[in-house]
Simulated assay, not measured.
Amino acid sequence: MKKGYIQIYTGNGKGKTTAALGLALRAVGRGLKVIMIQFLKGVDSGELHSAQRLAPEFTIYRFESSHKFISDMSDDELAQLRQDISRGFDFSKQVIQGNACDILILDEIMAAIHSGFINVSEVVELMRSKPDNIELVLTGRNVPDEIADLADLITEMKPIKHYYDKGVTARKGIEL
């Protein structure tokens, strides 16, 4: 890729990860290599199985060892999660430095920031160090201004209507 941009998918609506996955699917179809690093996602989900079918052109990495919600974790589990997320973010820096893919997706990186696991300044530094030929995609709610300022594209997912409000929980193959 000659020129890679920085894209952000944000907002309170459903579809941020799905948009990034759609981009990944399109890219793999055109012969590009995609790496997705998911933060704070511990449950089994369909994209993991799809990526296995598209490997080695598309790979998803998760570094967290716990599958609990942050609010349900003990202090020891939170300390472990902090280390896991740090390893994941360090890996994203290695991917950037090694020019290891055409598209790097940092899924739910904003949640990792807002949960206090990654500093905004670290993400800004990563964004600034991105080689020109890598497309960088960041997802998650509440994008800090310093990150938004460096983005080339920001799409906000806005909820209009959602079946979750009627009590429908996450469904296998749709949300999971």
Score class of each variant (00 low, 15 high):
1 M>P: 14
1 M>Y: 14
2 K>M: 09
3 K>M: 04
4 G>D: 01
9 Y>F: 14
12 N>T: 04
14 K>M: 10
15 G>W: 06
15 G>Y: 05
18 T>S: 12
20 A>M: 06
21 L>N: 02
21 L>A: 13
21 L>Y: 15
22 G>H: 10
23 L>S: 02
23 L>D: 07
23 L>G: 02
26 R>N: 08
29 G>I: 11
29 G>N: 12
30 R>Y: 06
30 R>N: 13
30 R>F: 05
31 G>V: 08
32 L>R: 12
32 L>K: 14
33 K>C: 10
33 K>V: 14
34 V>F: 05
34 V>L: 02
35 I>N: 12
35 I>L: 15
35 I>H: 13
35 I>P: 15
36 M>W: 03
36 M>N: 00
40 L>V: 00
46 G>D: 10
48 L>N: 05
50 S>C: 03
50 S>E: 02
52 Q>S: 08
55 A>H: 07
58 F>G: 08
59 T>W: 04
60 I>D: 03
61 Y>T: 01
62 R>S: 10
62 R>Q: 14
67 H>A: 10
69 F>P: 01
72 D>R: 14
75 D>W: 10
77 E>R: 00
79 A>R: 13
81 L>R: 11
82 R>I: 02
85 I>K: 02
85 I>V: 09
88 G>P: 00
91 F>H: 15
92 S>V: 02
92 S>T: 05
93 K>Q: 13
93 K>P: 06
96 I>K: 03
98 G>N: 13
102 D>C: 01
103 I>Q: 07
103 I>S: 04
103 I>E: 07
104 L>M: 05
105 I>A: 03
105 I>H: 09
107 D>K: 05
108 E>H: 03
110 M>W: 12
111 A>F: 11
111 A>Q: 02
113 I>S: 06
113 I>K: 04
114 H>N: 13
114 H>S: 08
114 H>T: 09
116 G>Y: 09
116 G>I: 09
117 F>K: 00
120 V>I: 01
122 E>N: 08
124 V>K: 10
125 E>K: 04
125 E>C: 06
126 L>M: 15
126 L>I: 05
126 L>P: 09
128 R>W: 03
128 R>Y: 01
129 S>A: 12
131 P>Q: 01
134 I>F: 04
136 L>E: 09
136 L>I: 06
137 V>K: 06
138 L>W: 10
141 R>P: 07
142 N>Q: 07
143 V>G: 09
144 P>K: 02
144 P>C: 04
144 P>A: 07
145 D>F: 01
145 D>W: 05
146 E>G: 00
149 D>H: 15
150 L>M: 05
151 A>I: 14
152 D>W: 05
154 I>Y: 04
157 M>F: 11
158 K>C: 07
159 P>L: 11
161 K>M: 10
162 H>I: 00
163 Y>W: 15
165 D>H: 14
168 V>N: 08
168 V>Y: 15
170 A>R: 06
176 L>S: 03
176 L>N: 03
